[in-house]
């Protein structure tokens, strides 16, 4: 019975965290700052007692940890089966620069700063957004750059 209680609590916390991070978190994991990391660490500790009820019993720990593993596995399966759901759950790549023109409203929506964009361009040895054909914020949070080819 205890195991069921804590498995259910773990499930609820996971769902709430998943929705919360999707709505409020930022996607550019590669641009994760030390502040974001501190938030994630504090977050995991903040929900710890909610998961286990502040008790250190082995059975509770196993029920809670087991639920996390199963939920992650189920989530991965759902995404593989239903690519349409993946768009909603994981997001789609976002175009940040098209044909040398930065798309400011999208950058703002995805919380990509000018500094982030410029750093990504320099990483690909470009000095200016005008030299880029496409700059895309991928779902994994990295920023990819497709330069203009000669004669473009």
């Amino acid at each position: 019975m205890t195991a069921v209680v804590y498995a259910a609590r773990t499930l609820i916390v996971l769902v709430v965290l998943g929705i919360g991070l999707r709505l409020l978190g930022k996607r550019e994991a590669s641009q994760l700052t030390i502040y974001d990391l501190a938030m994630i660490m504090a977050l995991s500790n903040a929900v710890q007692n909610a998961l286990t009820g502040g008790r250190g019993d082995l059975s509770i720990g196993l029920a809670s940890a087991g639920t996390i593993v199963v939920v992650t596995w189920v989530f991965a399966r759902i995404i593989r089966r239903r690519p349409d759901l993946e768009r909603r759950l994981v997001g789609v790549p976002t175009l940040l620069v098209y044909d040398g023109r930065p798309l400011r409203h999208r950058m703002r929506r995805e919380l990509v700063t000018d500094d982030d964009l410029e750093a990504a361009l320099r990483e690909r040895s470009l000095s200016d957004a005008r030299q880029a054909r496409l700059v895309v914020l991928e779902v994994d949070g990295s920023i990819t750059v497709v330069p203009r080819s000669e004669g473009d």
């Binding site: 609590r9 609820i12 916390v13 709430v16 965290l17 919360g20 991070l21 409020l24 978190g25 930022k26 502040y35 974001d36 938030m39 504090a42 977050l43 903040a46 929900v47 710890q48 007692n49 909610a50 998961l51 286990t52 009820g53 502040g54 008790r55």
Partner: peptide, 19 residues
């Protein structure tokens, strides 16, 4: 505070402030 609600409140505050 070992309640489910308490943990979720703390998590929500962290997510909001980080945002």
């Amino acid at each position: 505070d070992n309640t489910l609600g308490g943990g979720l409140v703390a998590a929500g505050v962290l997510l909001l402030l980080n945002r």
